[in-house]
Nucleic acid binder design. Sequence first.
RNA 1: GCCGGAGUGGCGGAACUGGCAGACGCGCUGGACUCAAAAUCCUGUGCCCGCAAGGGCGUGAGGGUUCGACUCCCUCCUCCGGCACCA
Length: 1104
Amino acid sequence: MPPPPPEPARDIPLHRYTAALASEIESRWQERWQRDDAYRAPNPGEHGFDPAQPKLFVLDMFPYPSGAGLHVGHPLGYIATDIYARYHRMCGKNVLHAMGFDAFGLPAEQYAIDTGTHPRATTEKNIGIFKKQLRRLGLGHEERRGVATTDVAFYKWTQWIFLQIYNSWYDAALNKARPIEGLIADLDSGTRPTGPQTKPWPKMDANERASHIDSHRLAYLADVDVNWCPALGTVLANEEVTTDGRSERGNHPVLKRPLRQWMMRITSYNERLLSDLEGLDWPEPIKMMQRNWIGRSEGAFVDFASGTRKVRVFTTRPDTLFGATYMVLSPEHALVDALAADKWGPTAPEAWKGRFPGAEALIAKEVSPKEMIAAYRAFASSKTDQERQADAKDKTGVFIGAYAVNPVNDERIPIFIADYVLTGYGTGAIMAVPAHDKRDFDFAKQFGLPIRDVYYPNAVLAMRFFCASATEGERRGEAWFPTLADFLGVVTSGDLKPNEFEGALSGIRAKPRNPEDDMKAKRAEKRHAHEDVPGALGQRRGTIRVSWQETLEGMGFDSFGELCEWFESKAFHAHSGEAFTGEGVAVNSGLLDNLHTHDAKQRISEHLEHKGLGKRAVQYKLRDWLFSRQRYWGEPFPIVYEEGDAKHERPIALPERLLPVTLPEIDEYKPVASDDPNAPPQPPLGRAKEWITVELDLGDGAKRYRRELNTMPQWAGSCWYYLRYLDPRNAESFVAPKVEQYWMLSEKGPADLGACGPDKASGSSVSEIDKPSGPQAPKPTFHSGGVDLYVGGAEHAVLHLLYARFWHKVLFDLGHVSTPEPFGRLFNQGYIQAPAYSDDRGVYVEATAVVEESPGRFSFEGKPVRREFGKMGKSLKNVTTPDDVCDEYGADTMRLYEMYMGPLEQSKPWNPRDIVGVHRFLQRVWRTVIDEDTGALRVSEEAPDAETLRLLSKTIESVRSDFERLSFNTAIAKLIELNNHISKSYGERPTPRPLATAIALMLAPIAPHFAEELWSRLHAGNAASIIRQPFPEADASALVESSIELPVQVQGKVRSRIVVAAEADEATIRAAALGDEKVRAFLEGKTVQKVIVVPGRMVNIVAG
RNA sequence: GCCGGAGUGGCGGAACUGGCAGACGCGCUGGACUCAAAAUCCUGUGCCCGCAAGGGCGUGAGGGUUCGACUCCCUCCUCCGGCACCA
């Protein structure tokens, strides 16, 4: 960024609102606000707390304090929440708005590895830079609540929450988490049996009991496949692995490896995480992403017998069971070895024996099924996830020499293993229905397996009926369509849409008989594409785009009769080209025949359950959460192990009194890397020799224990930081219940939540405190309480927001918080994009040094460069920092510009050229109030004229509603309009005081320093801060107009305008419209058929 | 492939529930001030025809519903985001 241009001071009026003046005003007020603790929001019990005052909790997604500092993209959301918070403060609310730091994490640790600087030093330095930058923007955060996740006093409570989770289990009967003591009590008293597969509780020894308990905990150790990077010596999150299966840092190979890791049983909550989304005021796309991530699907388990064993499959389409022609297990399925035959039977086709690279050679060597299985497993596990995805169409697998019996028709079907069946989902086994599943279809084609239709599209069935009963005349004549449509009506219970039929017909489209026909069909399609469709369907069900004749031609038939002949000749195959996965009518399915998909599902489920062959089931994609990392810069686990036998070790939770477990100092931060990929991980904490063992008395005498050496992932702190804002200094608990209830519970529904005004702001939130908690609490209508407004980027749509919801629900179940959801209203701000320029080698060049030669042509150091738009960042060399903008225009202009760029939720390009617009606006407002030459006030005590007052009231109304909706760009536009009107109306004359004060007040949330300065000057320096002045109210009486102008349309086009009395009745308006000269000219020679009068809106005259 | 979101002047965008398309800003045009420039102020600015009055066309494309469609419905195209063999 070039230095700001020197102010050409000599010709500019002395008291103009310039960057220099802005800077002076801004630092002066920032100091003053800090001195006065201007944003203090008292907690219950604190000085100044008023129980009658409504509360508002506004939250930003707190940042990771990176070394690069802020760029202009970061504060977008912060400015928005600041405006919202300031506005509501002016509406008399007790507003909590704070900013903390998500300060654990990899960059500081990586920097430590490279330089030896302690991550805490780096982190604290960066936090200092961030705080300074944020303060410079005038963000009204309450300082005392701004916590960092790395503060020992903070992560003590992160560890405490971990213990709460660890010491809990999920009681499926009550559908909530309970303390683990409850489980032990149930087992002791015998009210809860251990389960059919397990030893009874009284017969277990101490070890067995402990592991039985451990297997119920919400935090548990398990052997799981993780992304393990031997070179870095750590497991990596999926986001830290590149698309080609290497580490993002260092580009080292990453492999899947089973390791004993901490897990969180988030899957216990899948149903609640899913259904509680309904009550949240969140953007629909985010809800959708969470739904997809949780991935609920309804279906059934079905048991297939194979020899003496049963293989259970999961399917969402039990209604296609009659079409199952083979079965597939995942390569790792537990039953594969037991089921596999010693040799392939004589009837096993060669093609089944193995299809994967290297299989042919093995077949030639006549290896046994078991050898082939081993080879296939080796092949499958060597594939990265990316390769699997790339090969999705090319299916591989091996026939294991065994058969299973389809329980509904006793058919013998072959069993395969294939890696397109995943171990971790469902039962890791499927019944394959190639006719109605794309993947099964691909597999069947490649292995030469039978494909049996058990569903036909509705149209096909209609065709069957038709072919069976239509007369020769109907086939050949014009009347074919109505008859077919009637059949369709029967088949589809009458609600088939025309387009569905069109689609259905194209679904059975025959392969063109020869290329020439295909061309003919295409030409026909083009020729007729825009013609309206005559005929029965057009009249009966609306109009469709392509005529039936064309549909026929498109399928390669000249007439309907020809289609019938073809259909009857059995050349037709529903799956000629692909699997039919849509809904339709069952065929070839015995008891399901002629049922529609929905009914068939119902019927088969009842049948299976009745016969004991299967049962309805629900599956989820959501997996338990891998919760440990081999890193230094994270929260240590409050967990120790007994010294000694490492194989059977069980974790021991530290009691609360031993918290916090502080991070030890170590001399080197690097994890211990290893060339042996099978070596156990050596987390950096292992270097703290003094720390890794500890002598403790946990109730059975002093003993030495080994500490857990893993640390928690970065998500841990962000799962609950918002709760610590409420009560940041509390040493007794993570948040005092009274305080938590005050800030998190909302008595009001969603409609009232954002509302602000004297009539709506009454009523107390504290009366709510006695509300019962627990899952039995009254069902939320829409708003489930929690944070009133949470603003952040959509990149956290699933991970952070899902993890935080999970922790919150656990805390809720255990009675530590009073709302089932943490964030009642969520808003996603867009990204700020910026042009980035690359030269002919594709290397990015410094964007600030690029010049625009001519529109659309850019050059850097004389050479042409290419422009694109991307997320602002170091790598694209297109960063602008807020400090640059503050230097050049001031923080208020910066705030105003970011809000004026466009809708908050939209991504938009950073365009510095536009900043002058809002800067000029502030200059004009300044001139409305202050004389640029003398610096004196230029306001008068005279009353504003009626028209200006009306505009003022209108502006107040819309600005208020715009603020509520976070529509700041339009709010600013209204304010510009108002100011333009004032300067036009009053010109050189001084501005009436009410207008000046109103505009200052309305600007206060957006441009706080600027508004405070005007406010102060308007009151000769004797005013209390504008921060808590009441926001202007619209004057209803000023809004009344005596006459209004209405547009008059003829045939829907505006032709004239009429002025009528505001309260004019319809007849008067009608007469005025018809009498209008211009209207009469347009009605010349026509008769008026209809006059539509929309009172207060417009008039439309229909004439013909 | 599946699921979302979005396409409006030269540019960013407005029109909130089907009722005056283009608010507001940038840019550009012309003018005032100035020796001149900058800054500031005023004027105009969707496209086409027209000296003008006026007219025609216009919200990604095509159709539909309606007295009336940026807004609702259908088909298609383009861009962005998410998921990706989840049975």
